[in-house]
Amino acid sequence: MSEVTFGITRNDAAKEFSALPGCEAWGILHPGRTGKIAPGPALARVHHHITSSEQQPAFTLTTAAEPAHTLCTIAPQAGAAAQQTVYAVHDGYGRFIGQVTHERSPRGMRQAWRIEDAGGQRSMTAYKGNIRGWIAYWAFSPFWALLALLNLLNGDTHSSWWLWGKPRRAHWRTRAGDGPRKPALDFKSGRYRADTGLLDANLIYAQATLYGA
């Protein structure tokens, strides 16, 4: 297993790099986890295409070291089914390395994200938030108004992530032959943990970028 652990930083300090033409600086992929950046160079810079929409964003990932070169591009594809967005991912040489599909779960209750490699050999799907997280989310929802009022009385006019944030835990697995399902990508508490032996690293970074958008 070739494991890499990383987070995405999107604060002002992460946007100080010069974006590509037609883009804006969106964030940085760094080793470690959000708020706890591990020593060492950043994994990638993320450039958001200004002409893309909020529902169908497009990104270019480049190296953090200068001179920067393109790691991969992420662009929505036309002709997707209703309530589905398919993103094609190409490497820095323009070669197709896979796709990411954003859709709904079979019952339509949760967001689903599916990664497929270029050869169609591996396909894995994750659902936004686990069952336990969603149960807790809805169980505490009647108290949100009270918590929001307490926040206002304390002078906090901004919504806190713990107050309004929906469950985001996600776990992508792939099946290797007839063996057990292997974890390819996992997201928990602002940290991504991936097995780059199962998926192209740039395809993993593309999924993480879209999931964080």
Rank of each mutant, 00 (worst) to 15 (best):
1 M>N: 08
2 S>Y: 00
6 F>S: 02
6 F>V: 09
6 F>K: 03
8 I>K: 05
8 I>Q: 04
11 N>V: 02
14 A>N: 07
15 K>A: 12
32 G>E: 08
38 A>D: 13
39 P>K: 05
42 A>R: 05
48 H>P: 00
50 I>V: 15
51 T>S: 13
52 S>M: 06
53 S>M: 02
53 S>V: 09
54 E>Q: 07
61 L>K: 03
71 L>M: 14
73 T>S: 13
75 A>S: 13
76 P>I: 10
77 Q>S: 14
80 A>I: 01
81 A>G: 08
85 T>G: 07
88 A>D: 12
90 H>D: 15
91 D>P: 10
91 D>G: 10
92 G>D: 09
93 Y>W: 06
97 I>R: 00
100 V>D: 06
101 T>M: 10
103 E>Y: 11
104 R>I: 02
105 S>V: 08
108 G>H: 09
109 M>L: 14
109 M>D: 13
110 R>H: 12
111 Q>D: 13
111 Q>K: 09
116 E>L: 04
117 D>R: 03
118 A>L: 03
120 G>S: 10
120 G>D: 06
122 R>C: 05
122 R>T: 07
127 Y>W: 13
135 I>L: 14
140 F>W: 08
151 N>P: 00
152 L>R: 14
153 L>S: 09
153 L>V: 11
155 G>P: 10
157 T>P: 04
165 G>Y: 07
167 P>C: 10
168 R>N: 13
169 R>H: 15
172 W>T: 02
176 A>E: 15
176 A>H: 05
176 A>R: 10
181 R>T: 11
183 P>H: 04
188 K>A: 12
195 D>E: 12
195 D>G: 05
195 D>A: 12
202 N>T: 13
203 L>I: 11
204 I>F: 07
204 I>H: 03
205 Y>K: 02
